[in-house]
Design a protein around this nucleic acid. Structure first.
Lengths: 218, 218
DNA sequence: AATAAAGATGAAACAGTTTCAGCTTTTGCC
DNA sequence: GGCAAAAGCTGAAACTGTTTCATCTTTATT
């Protein structure tokens, strides 16, 4: 349902040139334009509207070019998702660095969660990309470069380092549990339109986050 | 990305005959054969392997027939998922009826969760179908006939009726939260291969379930 | 300003879904 | 049993969307 066959079955045993790292500024512009267009499309019409043809039209580049930077459509969506996550993570990372190490862990966690949600709300496409991402990269058991691994690596791990009692390096499987849990709840939050529902949801998410953190460090 | 255009654009304003309820036993057999084949395919090769062509081949039915019972491929997968859920729910429903109403709520909840996971493990395709379902029916804010609504309706609601203090009819948004939470965690559980990881995961899930229940009734 | 490397193009091959005009089987009625 | 209507089935072909690749254009380098 995805891997094609090549027309006359490429005889060369070559490793099929993988997506390329842009070397000229023109290329950087093209790549960025593609990702921006993906975000815009997802924000206005949802991830299903992102077809290679459509994207080529709206950006003015040709379909073939898309495949120069992304090995397939899924990677394109994933890259767009990663882009939004990186922005959120950066904001939270800075906030984390500024937090007083003496403050109680629960308070720090609450603060970061709030900031995370605030920032995520800022990016219209993020909810749609998150959903698309979940469909593309199903929940996996292994701790490998999975779902919200980057968030764990960039925020949760440093957070625990800073606020956990003995500086226990939490085991990967529990970290993964936390990723999956928080990922879903954030998803639910972003998709909830009603403001008062959102407020209540924040409390709910907070409670479960704190429980998970407790069990993680305890 | 899904709705097609009809060839000469059907002039009739007719409501496009929707999937049919089987009236003859031949039809019932066909429908069942299709769903069974879906389960088998998902169990052995994953949901992506379920293509209309492939399904037609393995069941000996022609592609057109599939569309007599399912309006599109997604509905087919969803129907297969619903089938597995119904089996699990039935088992748990019976157990729920047999539980002593005097027992503490937490103990009852634990018991049902265990039974739920045990039964789900019994169905090889269930994990794959759950994942497919999640991709097809993204997390939605409205409480409508959503994700694990049937589970809520068939188990959680009766459960609360039986064990909750004042018989409070919990509000739909909190019930939906519980659905989403448990759905994801069960998904994670089923996808975890290592036995000792599973055991630990059960405890984790239990803790979060109890927290959610507490907040639901408290 | 010549040449190589990087980047871009787009027609066409593919995979997969969905429709529909007819064909076959079953049901119900005499 | 015989037969018309209803139910069920068929499969070629229309369609949408993805991916490849031979070829052309632009940029960097000397």
């Amino acid at each position: 349902m995805k891997q094609f066959q090549l027309l006359p079955k490429s005889e060369t045993g070559a490793p099929a040139t993988s997506p390329v790292v842009p070397r000229q500024k023109r290329a950087q512009r093209t790549r960025t334009a593609l990702l921006d267009a993906v975000e815009a499309l997802v924000a206005t019409e949802g991830a299903d509207a992102v077809t290679t043809t459509r994207l080529a039209e709206t950006t003015g580049v040709s379909v073939g070019t898309i495949y120069r930077y992304f090995s397939d459509r899924d990677q394109l969506l994933l890259a767009a998702y990663d882009g939004t996550v990186a922005r959120i993570v950066e904001t939270c990372g800075e906030a984390l660095a500024d937090l007083d190490p003496g403050m109680p862990m629960a308070a720090a966690a609450r603060k970061l969660l709030g900031l995370y949600l605030d920032t995520a709300e800022t990016i219209p496409a993020h909810s749609g990309l998150l959903a698309a991402m979940r469909a593309l990269r199903p929940i996996e058991a292994d701790q490998g470069g999975g779902n919200e691994a980057s968030i764990v690596g960039a925020i949760v791990a440093p957070f625990l380092q800073k606020f956990s009692a003995g500086g226990v390096a939490a085991d990967p499987s529990r970290l993964h549990f936390l990723s999956v849990l928080m990922g879903t709840l954030v998803d639910l939050y972003l998709v909830t339109p009603d403001t008062s529902d959102r407020t209540r949801l924040r409390e709910e998410i907070e409670a479960h986050m704190l429980l998970a953190l407790e069990r993680l460090s305890g």
